[in-house]
Amino acid sequence: MAVAEKNKALAHSTLFAEFVDFLDRHLDLPPDNVPTRAVNAVEDIERAAEACRMKWGLGLDRPIDNMIRSLENAGVMVLMVEGYVAKVDAFSAIGPTGRKLVVLNRKDSGSRTVFNAAHELGHLVIHEGVETGDRETERQADRFASAYLMPRAGFVKEFPRTSRINWTALLKLKARWRVSLQAMVRRAYDLALISAVQYQRFYKAISAKGWRKAEPGEFPITGPEVVHAALAVLQTRMNLGFDDLASTLSVSRQKLSEITGIDAPDGQPPDEPGKVVSFVAAKEARRRA
């Protein structure tokens, strides 16, 4: 990744963290419930993913219907943005108050976005205090994502084991488990459900069909809900509108829209450069009015 794009992603995560910190100070957000565990071997990663699912009541034999909601329920603040950094699929961070953050890029397909979210969860669970970004930590996060989305207890029972590739069965499995064909094939290989020869055959067939970049059977995903709900609460219960919030955070309406992933409401007056209104002062002024 170019340095400029990396710096842009870091700047965005910093602004998002400041926004979330503001929400944490004024609203009752879901508490942090993300388990952390150090790992050394592949089996450690498998067990970490299973422990995470069990802690969240997701079981080990069924798909996750809503990946983003599973993160938000555990206190992770999730943001989906579009096009701000073309080469960044997703990234995670920990805010100044310890709040865990995940930012996803809307440019990807539904199955890719789900896997990216699970990959970032992997970093948060198994890489606490570890510098990530190298080949090994990325490989570990991928393995965690696979184990979290396709737990071995359930996936082993459902993956079709036939001598020929059954695309109809695999596409049905994709719709059920909400992961890509490529992720399922890799998971099947990791769990020894297919041999190395079969694995290569699968990938050659996927490439020949042009599915490496655009698979069939993609699905829409539900975006983050907590940020939307938080802004609604600020508006209805505190009378703090979008422009008020932008002023309080000392950012423009456009920047606040980028930070939150929510379009600024129409019909608002333009920004006044340099105008900063404190949250306390604004609330007191409304009380007196």
Results as ranks from 00 to 15, higher is better:
residue 56 W to I: 07
residue 102 V to P: 00
residue 96 P to H: 12
residue 26 H to D: 09
residue 110 G to T: 06
residue 119 H to T: 03
residue 107 K to R: 15
residue 21 D to E: 15
residue 27 L to R: 04
residue 20 V to S: 06
residue 55 K to S: 12
residue 21 D to L: 12
residue 116 N to A: 12
residue 23 L to M: 08
residue 66 N to T: 09
residue 34 V to P: 06
residue 46 E to A: 11
residue 60 L to S: 07
residue 20 V to A: 07
residue 77 M to T: 11
residue 78 V to M: 02
residue 22 F to E: 06
residue 18 E to S: 12
residue 58 L to K: 01
residue 111 S to C: 12
residue 71 L to V: 02
residue 24 D to I: 06
residue 98 G to E: 01
residue 98 G to W: 05
residue 61 D to I: 11
residue 42 V to R: 15
residue 84 Y to K: 10
residue 93 A to Y: 00
residue 56 W to R: 10
residue 100 K to S: 04
residue 80 M to G: 05
residue 62 R to Q: 15
residue 112 R to A: 14
residue 74 A to T: 03
residue 83 G to A: 06
residue 87 K to P: 11
residue 78 V to R: 00
residue 94 I to A: 04
residue 32 D to P: 08
residue 37 R to A: 11
residue 83 G to T: 09
residue 18 E to L: 13
residue 104 L to H: 03
residue 114 V to G: 02
residue 44 D to I: 05
residue 24 D to Y: 06
residue 79 L to A: 11
residue 86 A to I: 11
residue 39 V to T: 10
residue 116 N to M: 09
residue 40 N to R: 15
residue 72 E to V: 09
residue 75 G to F: 05
residue 49 A to N: 06
residue 107 K to Q: 13
residue 61 D to R: 13
residue 98 G to T: 03
residue 56 W to A: 06
residue 113 T to H: 02
residue 78 V to H: 01
residue 21 D to V: 09
residue 118 A to M: 03
residue 105 N to T: 08
residue 32 D to E: 11
residue 87 K to H: 14
residue 71 L to T: 01
residue 54 M to P: 08
residue 80 M to L: 14
residue 75 G to T: 09
residue 117 A to S: 08
residue 43 E to Q: 14
residue 101 L to D: 00
residue 58 L to F: 05
residue 107 K to P: 02
residue 34 V to A: 06
residue 41 A to F: 15
residue 91 F to K: 00
residue 37 R to H: 11
residue 99 R to E: 04
residue 62 R to P: 08
residue 108 D to I: 13
